[in-house]
Write a protein that binds this DNA or RNA. Sequence first.
DNA 1: CATGAATGAGTTTTCATTCAT
DNA 2: CATGAATGAAAACTCATTCAT
Lengths: 200, 200, 200, 200
Amino acid sequence: MTDRLVNRIIMTKNIGKAEQIRIKRKKEIMDVALRLFGTFGYHATSISHIANEAGISKGLIYNYFESKEQLLKEIFDSGKDSWLSNLGEIEIKTKKDFEKFINALFKLIKDFENKEWFKLYYTMMLQPTVFDILEKEIEMAHKDFLVNLMNYFAKNGSEDPEMDVLILHSAIDGTVLQYIYVPEAIDFERVKKVIIKRFT
Amino acid sequence: MTDRLVNRIIMTKNIGKAEQIRIKRKKEIMDVALRLFGTFGYHATSISHIANEAGISKGLIYNYFESKEQLLKEIFDSGKDSWLSNLGEIEIKTKKDFEKFINALFKLIKDFENKEWFKLYYTMMLQPTVFDILEKEIEMAHKDFLVNLMNYFAKNGSEDPEMDVLILHSAIDGTVLQYIYVPEAIDFERVKKVIIKRFT
Amino acid sequence: MTDRLVNRIIMTKNIGKAEQIRIKRKKEIMDVALRLFGTFGYHATSISHIANEAGISKGLIYNYFESKEQLLKEIFDSGKDSWLSNLGEIEIKTKKDFEKFINALFKLIKDFENKEWFKLYYTMMLQPTVFDILEKEIEMAHKDFLVNLMNYFAKNGSEDPEMDVLILHSAIDGTVLQYIYVPEAIDFERVKKVIIKRFT
Amino acid sequence: MTDRLVNRIIMTKNIGKAEQIRIKRKKEIMDVALRLFGTFGYHATSISHIANEAGISKGLIYNYFESKEQLLKEIFDSGKDSWLSNLGEIEIKTKKDFEKFINALFKLIKDFENKEWFKLYYTMMLQPTVFDILEKEIEMAHKDFLVNLMNYFAKNGSEDPEMDVLILHSAIDGTVLQYIYVPEAIDFERVKKVIIKRFT
DNA sequence: CATGAATGAGTTTTCATTCAT
DNA sequence: CATGAATGAAAACTCATTCAT
């Protein structure tokens, strides 16, 4: 949810003052928490830390989120929704579609409100034992666009479409990782060009 | 540090019985800790948990490691050494070399004593604020073989060797991530084939 | 304070509309609070819980009661008044009087607006350290009818009137406890018969 | 578990030092907690309070008990065991048996290591919603000796044995309550005499 | 009057670390 | 060497109470 969207919702006359505050505050907390979770990790970030950084009291956070875990979940879901709503609709049939898809993907990664979300995403993926509820959601979310890609590769003369998807997926995962790690090293335009070249 | 190596060190006559036990114990603790760190994460794994799992007392761990953080560092370094000592020596000049390198790489990933180490590796990479000392070491370690690869691509007609290295690196990172995440989904032989094909 | 009494007070012309609402609201809050205190205990019942259950805001409760403790005290006093005003007047001289008294007593226990009050009563009795102000009031209130009973036993050939009162009192206390605990197990008619038989 | 018993167990040579400390400490904590729970109530007694009173750190309590609730449960069970092991064996057939039973009962109530236990017992009985696990145990524990008594009344010409048991039970409950409330007012010898007289 | 966002002190609980035995 | 009882600082979470609107 972007700030602009939040503001538009709030501007609407038929929302009470209290509700306006709630929406703003909730987003505020989620933004701060995402940044800290991403920077220090979920466990190493305390509720106190979040509250301090957001300039509010510890107690208030529990007025908005049932628990620390629930706060994490809401942050995660919110990011996931953004992600999916931007990629889910693209049908990949022609080479043009593929390019369009790769473009959309990298635009998303770059523009995405907060690259911290990806840190969370990968960190959480790495500890399925801890966050097994989220695991399922992630898998489901992926499946659609992986199938999409596989069909594309199959129709375009790939010898092993399954593996091609795997490697492409890996390359993207890896690129995102690198972007998170050393953002200044990634020139997305060049990355896109190489990926499109290597995978068409 | 492999078990075999440990045994060889221990066999050496000029190490006292007591010292032999120390070395074995230390490795035991590190193995257990690595497994638990990988499974539950560093923060979510308590010293008690490690001690229980290793069948020793909490106190004893502090006989071998200064602190929990130091234990982590030693585990990390030990894994890193294995990793580097296996890849650092390969010179990549011909296509054969490249294939050899890719083969060595995947063999390492697959055989590596414990895939939990990679979980640690990536998790730690994702939280630079916490472990920035380690970060530098990793970067240094990588540089060598990245330069190696870049030269290879440059000499073999790549339009953008830097980017090719980046993508290859990303693909490898991504593949490892996927392997950690769904090991049974990764057929290394096929992955290798596709990577070699796409990058030569 | 019964609903009827509340209504009578409210009907009185020289009470303004606003004041009428206040009285009704106050009773509403006390009723809800009593039910929750009785069910979950004083400490385990939060002001939020009471407010929710009463369909009002937390803040409003503080418009009617100084504090949570004051709310408890008012509930307690209100119940106590009902109790005493119904028993204080009976003079026990003949066997008929005794029967009348026992009948009145059990009618009170059974009809009493809310058996939760007894839960409160006994719970509070059991923690003298916390509520020793209330304690004294109860003791005073009891004394009258205990003296009443003792005189009756003394005049009717009891060997140890003091003890007889004690046991009778205990039996009543115990019966109320049982009634609170397993209401359906208590057939008041039979209980009364046995008590009258055993104690005359 | 009496102190003497604890000491005897500890004296036994084949118990390690650590285990000795554990047993003593555990009892120490339970004793302090029982006293405070009885005096202030379960919810109004904090773990800090218990730790202070016992002269130990908060953390240590969790070395011995999983949670505050578990501490309560263990205290409760320990008291219940004492109670049952002393009354469960008496068969009530003759008037002598009944007297013996009543004697044993009051001896138990009087001698019982800690009358605070009864406060807990009654307080907990009054809030079944909160402690419903214990509820069942209490019911089971009672049943035996209630059946025992009913048979006795039935064989000895009671018109309504069920009610007689109820009243007797109530009288006992009530007496214990009074004893807890104003211990100095209860002359057990006289109480026993009256109960035996009224119920035979 | 009525609301509910906000506070902050207090609660239960965890855990790395120490140290007497 | 090895144990595990003990500590204390910090974590997550709760809730009576206040106050701007």
